[in-house]
Simulated assay, not measured.
Amino acid sequence: MRKLVWIAWWLTLVVVPLGAYVRLSDAGLGCPDWPGCYGHLSVPAAAHELDHAASRFPDQPLDAGKAWKEMIHRYAAGLLGLTILALTVAGWRRARRAGLPPPALETTLAAVLVLQALLGMWTVTLLLKPAVVTLHLIGGMSTLALLTVLLARERGLAPVRLAARARWGVGLVLVAVVGQVLLGGWVSSNYAALACGVQFPACRGEWLPDGMLFRDSFHVWRALGETASGALLSSDHLTAIHWLHRAGAGVVTLSLGLLLVRLWPQHRLRRHLLALGVLLLTQLLLGMANVLLQLPLPLAVAHNAVGAWLLAGVVLLGWRVWQSAAQTVSDPSAAWSPSCVNRY
């Protein structure tokens, strides 16, 4: 079980940035159908396969480079899906042998996997609707968060007792990071990464640009590049999307920075806190570099990858402090130990 969780966790850290690479390299529709590519399980190459693809999708000529990017992502996601199914079955079997109820985490993970497969299909069939693309990213990050908790549980990582105020601070930081991931997905799915121009920290020459249009920019169900009424999104719409993501970065930086200072006296958490601080600084530098260097693909993908690591780190911190609180409520006299975590 531990090996399966470990493999799935690392695969997720590959699949999530790989999906960002596909999207940022404009290969999200490299294959116009799903789960295959132009009616095949791999990118068509033989003459008869190319003829069949041209007849079936006459308005979408094959670009082999983009199609292979999309299919490699699908293969990796498929491998991740099989691994998650295997660990879910293993978790259910272990619970049945122990006479316990069905495991909630493994069952939730399997449900997220099914939803992710559907979102992957809808991403293609609904032609990259921003809401679907963003939800697909959130599904990938949710998979990573659940696997992080499973990995901590399987490795018997000991929780850390904190005061209630500090625990709630960790929870608020987690909410801020999740919100920032959502905003980042909305920026990416609307291709608004350079809406503020090549400027930082100013946006279009101002801290708070005039004329930003928020209402239509954040209307959930609309086509890519359009408002809900079908009009084209203007630069003022895209600026509003990008500016709010920058504001979210400020909230995350301030809240996480204060939390790191608040928890630094906890010696058992110092390595964890140091890692979070490094990830936060790296993410800020990557965000600035993406703007100032006009979104080079390697840096854009790295921004997504470090965001995934930062989310996993905050989730792990939350698990360590809230599990201790849960144990205290259920048994105030209990002392936490690795064996206690393994029993749980």
Results as ranks from 00 to 15, higher is better:
M1S: 15
L11V: 04
V16R: 08
D26W: 02
P32I: 09
G36K: 03
G39K: 04
H40S: 11
S42F: 12
H52C: 00
R56A: 15
D59V: 02
P61Q: 07
D63C: 00
H73I: 01
R74Y: 08
Y75P: 04
L80M: 10
L80H: 05
G81F: 03
G81P: 04
T88W: 13
T88R: 01
V89A: 14
A95K: 01
R96I: 01
R97W: 01
G99N: 04
P101Y: 09
P101A: 05
L105I: 08
T107S: 15
L109N: 10
L113H: 13
V114S: 13
Q116D: 12
G120Y: 05
T123S: 15
L126C: 10
A131K: 00
T134C: 04
I138V: 13
S142V: 01
L144K: 02
A145Q: 08
R155T: 15
A158P: 00
R161T: 12
L162P: 08
G169E: 09
G171T: 10
V173Q: 11
V175C: 09
A176K: 03
V177E: 04
G179Q: 09
L182K: 09
L183M: 14
L183D: 11
G184L: 11
S188H: 07
Y191R: 12
A193T: 06
F200Q: 11
A202N: 13
W207Y: 11
W207Q: 08
L208Q: 12
F214N: 14
R222E: 08
E226P: 00
S229P: 02
A231W: 01
S234W: 04
L238A: 07
L238K: 11
G250P: 11
V251L: 14
T253Q: 01
L258K: 00
L269A: 09
L274M: 12
T282Y: 01
L284P: 00
L285A: 13
L286M: 07
N290I: 00
V291G: 07
L295M: 12
V301D: 10
A302K: 04
N304C: 03
V306L: 05
G307W: 00
A312Y: 02
W319Y: 14
W319R: 14
V321K: 03
T328D: 15
S330G: 05
W336F: 02
C340N: 10
